[in-house]
Simulated assay, not measured.
Amino acid sequence: MNTILITLIAISAILYLIFAIYYENKIYKFIWKPGTMILIIILAITESGLSTTFSYWVLSALVFSLIGDIFLMLREKWFIHGLVSFLIAHILYIVGFIVSFSFTFSFNIFLLVVALILLAVILLAVILYFYLFPNVRKEGGKKLLFAVAFYIIIITTMVSLAIMTGTKILIAAAFLFFVSDAILAVNKFKVRFRLADYFVMSTYFTAQLLFAISIGGQ
């Protein structure tokens, strides 16, 4: 594991949290947000050597996430473009899971636990959607409602498949991504709170870092 590169990623993420968020500096935001993702992409390449099919899917997802980050840093009119970019990233993760893992289980305690966790994730996603529903409809109408609903379905599918792989690092990465997006959505459409950006970006960077590290063992 490239500890030097991981350390640089951690430093870059911390610099973003301090200078871009705390000091609300747009220049630092444009430097450290994509900069951190670029370092994570480099880590993904060096960790895997792109020697597996899964590594290519993860790398592609990371690149689309980077594109989504850039769109979300721009004006509000680019929000939907960022949403679509992250939607594609989640789909790429989904395809990566499907082509790289076997999901055949015999009925046992592990399968029961997985089923319960999956139900909990799906229930959480449904609650989140209906919690956001009135404000999303007010802000963007039926089109935005559909886009948000579809996005929640896709990210929930991604988390569910990550859980079904039984790989701890992938489960942690997918769940943190879900948490990051959920906080972002609540902060944007429902209740704005000061610490939201810290929670969103810390869980997001950690999730993407774990995805990058995970392909080293595939």
Rank of each mutant, 00 (worst) to 15 (best):
residue 86 F to T: 11
residue 85 S to D: 04
residue 103 F to E: 01
residue 81 H to L: 14
residue 90 H to F: 15
residue 83 L to K: 06
residue 101 F to C: 05
residue 98 I to N: 04
residue 108 N to M: 06
residue 89 A to V: 09
residue 85 S to C: 04
residue 101 F to E: 02
residue 99 V to T: 15
residue 77 K to W: 00
residue 109 I to H: 04
residue 91 I to E: 03
residue 89 A to T: 10
residue 81 H to G: 06
residue 89 A to Q: 10
residue 105 F to M: 13
residue 81 H to I: 02
residue 73 M to A: 10
residue 84 V to K: 08
residue 91 I to S: 02
residue 80 I to V: 13
residue 97 F to L: 04
residue 73 M to Y: 00
residue 103 F to V: 03
residue 74 L to I: 00
residue 87 L to E: 06
residue 95 V to A: 11
residue 90 H to A: 12
residue 112 L to T: 01
residue 100 S to C: 14
residue 105 F to T: 09
residue 92 L to W: 02
residue 89 A to N: 00
residue 107 F to L: 13
residue 81 H to K: 09
residue 87 L to C: 13
residue 83 L to E: 10
residue 99 V to N: 12
residue 107 F to G: 05
residue 104 T to V: 15
residue 88 I to A: 08
residue 85 S to K: 07
residue 85 S to A: 15
residue 100 S to F: 13
residue 102 S to I: 11
residue 84 V to I: 15
residue 112 L to V: 13
residue 110 F to L: 12
residue 88 I to K: 01
residue 77 K to P: 00
residue 82 G to D: 00
residue 96 G to N: 01
residue 103 F to Q: 08
residue 104 T to G: 08
residue 75 R to W: 03
residue 74 L to D: 04
residue 95 V to W: 13
residue 106 S to I: 15
residue 87 L to Q: 00
residue 80 I to T: 07
residue 73 M to N: 04
residue 94 I to W: 03
residue 90 H to S: 09
residue 83 L to Q: 08
residue 87 L to A: 09
residue 86 F to Y: 11
residue 109 I to Y: 14
residue 94 I to D: 07
residue 102 S to G: 11
residue 107 F to Q: 15
residue 74 L to F: 11
residue 76 E to F: 01
residue 82 G to M: 09
residue 109 I to A: 13
residue 110 F to N: 10
residue 97 F to R: 05
residue 108 N to D: 15
residue 79 F to G: 05
residue 88 I to T: 13
residue 100 S to Q: 11
residue 98 I to A: 03
residue 88 I to S: 05
residue 92 L to P: 11
residue 90 H to R: 12
residue 77 K to A: 04
residue 77 K to Y: 07
residue 73 M to S: 02
residue 97 F to K: 01
residue 74 L to G: 05
residue 95 V to Y: 12
residue 106 S to C: 09
residue 90 H to V: 10
residue 92 L to D: 03
residue 96 G to Q: 14
residue 100 S to W: 07
residue 108 N to S: 14
residue 110 F to V: 11
residue 99 V to G: 06
residue 81 H to Q: 03
residue 73 M to Q: 12
residue 102 S to D: 13
residue 89 A to R: 11
